[in-house]
């Protein structure tokens, strides 16, 4: 697939490329090149199916990574296009005009990461989290366990989880079985 990356490189700037498998290539491009590249891939190559579209929170770099997984079913190959966007003001261009199925992905990413896709339908419409008031839960600075404890509480119950402790409580410190 390296020839194909060369072909992309001739048109758009490829920051890095990583052949993960013989049939899966990962490339990174700038955000300004993302939509032209995806449009070119969809119109001129076999990679016209958007298999998956998701985000990764790189909190150390202060960036979100958008990952578009495009598949060429005729050649049985996939191309993963990675785009870094600013974490402080996460806004990306919508691709719903290329792939209508991206609408749900973009709706979900707005809800789970707070990434907005201006112009995409159903932006801000609740998908799973109705009436969510906290920061988006898939961001890594969201403390899930603390939120769950505060919101839903724990059922009081046994405090010990080690089976050895249970044996000690039931049969004395020496234990039921001989402890060598």
């Amino acid at each position: 697939m390296n020839e194909f990356v060369q072909e992309i490189q001739a048109r758009f700037e490829v920051l890095w490329s990583n052949p993960q498998r013989p049939d899966l290539m990962q490339i990174g491009v700038r955000q300004v090149n993302a939509l032209p590249l995806l449009t070119w891939l969809k119109s001129n190559t076999g990679y016209f199916i958007l298999n998956h579209f998701s985000a990764v929170d790189w909190i150390e770099d202060g960036e979100f990574q958008l990952t578009y997984l495009l598949t060429d079913y005729a050649a049985r190959r996939s191309l993963m296009v990675c785009v870094r966007i600013d974490r402080a003001a996460p806004t990306a261009e919508s691709v719903h005009h290329l792939w209508p199925e991206a609408v749900t992905y973009e709706q979900e990413m707005f809800e789970m990461f707070g990434i907005s896709f201006p112009g995409s339908p159903r932006q801000g419409v609740d998908l799973l989290l109705e009436g969510w008031e906290d920061i988006p839960p898939m961001r890594r600075d969201f403390d899930t366990a603390a939120f769950a404890e505060e919101a839903f509480g724990f059922r009081p119950g046994r405090t010990h989880t080690n089976p050895r402790d249970r044996v000690a409580i039931a049969f004395g410190q020496k234990g039921f079985l001989h402890d060598h």
Partner: peptide
């Protein structure tokens, strides 16, 4: 047990 959207009790 640590889910943000699932009730526990």
């Amino acid at each position: 047990w640590d889910s943000y959207s699932t009730i526990k009790i």
